[in-house]
Amino acid sequence: MPLISLTDIHKSYGQNEVLKGITLDIEPGEVIALIGKSGSGKSTLLRCINGLETYQQGSIRVAGTSVLESAGQLRLLRQKVGMIFQQFNLFPHLSVGRNVMLAPMVVKKTGKAEAEALAKEMLTRVGLGQKFDAYPGQLSGGQQQRVAIARALAMQPLALLCDEITSALDPELVNEVLAVVRDLAAQGMTLVMVTHEMRFAREVCHRLVFMHQGRIHESGPPEQVFTAPQTPELRQFIGQRDAA
C-alpha cells in the first residue's frame, strides 16, 4: 500500500491553474525527486501534501489520513510528515536544542528530560550534537538546515518533504546537507524532494518525476529519465542542465 497517495489534484490561484490533475503514489521507503522548471508546480504540489496549500479537487492520503478532512486530522497527518524548507525557518528565539525539543513537548506532551535526550540524539545524527546550546543565528546556513532536519526527525515522521533545501546555501555548504539526506535515504526514510541538484537526484533517488505546466509530464528511474527522455520538454530540461 502506498504511504502517500495523490489522486487527480487540481489547484488554481484564481484563473491560473497551477496543478492540472496530479496522480502519484509514493511507497514507504521510496526516495523521489520532483524536477522541472520553476513555475511547473513542484513546490506547490509538495506543499499540498502536508496541507500548507489547499487544493480544489482530488484527494491526498498519507498513511490512511486524508489531508483536508479537519484541522485535527491535519495536525495528526503533519506529525507523520515532516517538512524542511528552503529558508530553514528555525525559531530564532530558541536555542538549537529547544528548537528540536519544542514540538515533541508541545504536540506529543513528551517530558522535558525525554525530549532533551531525543533532541541530543537527533542533533548527533545530523552531526551537530555539540551545538545544543547555540542559537540559530550563530550557525552557518548548512548547520541551520541540518538543525531543521533534526527538528523534523524528532517528531519521528514516516516521510520527509524537502522543498529546495539547498537552494539558499552557499555552494560549499550544500554537500554537508546532502550528506545528511543521503544517510536518511540509506536508512529507509521516505523522502519527497523538490531539488535542482540533478547529480544528487540521479545518485540517490529511486524515481524522478518531471513536472511541466502543472502536470506530471514524465517519470521513471533516474537512469531512464537522464539517458532516455521520452518527451522533447524533458530532453530540453536535461539538456539545459547539462549545459549549465
Partner: peptide, 20 residues
C-alpha cells in the same frame, strides 16, 4: 515561514502563537 514551520510540526494555531 515561522507559522509554516510550527504548523508543519503538528502544532495548533494557539500553540504556534504562544511558543513561536
Amino acid at each position: 515561514g515561522q507559522w509554516e514551520a510550527g504548523g508543519s510540526l503538528g502544532m495548533s494555531y494557539l500553540e504556534q502563537l504562544r511558543h513561536i
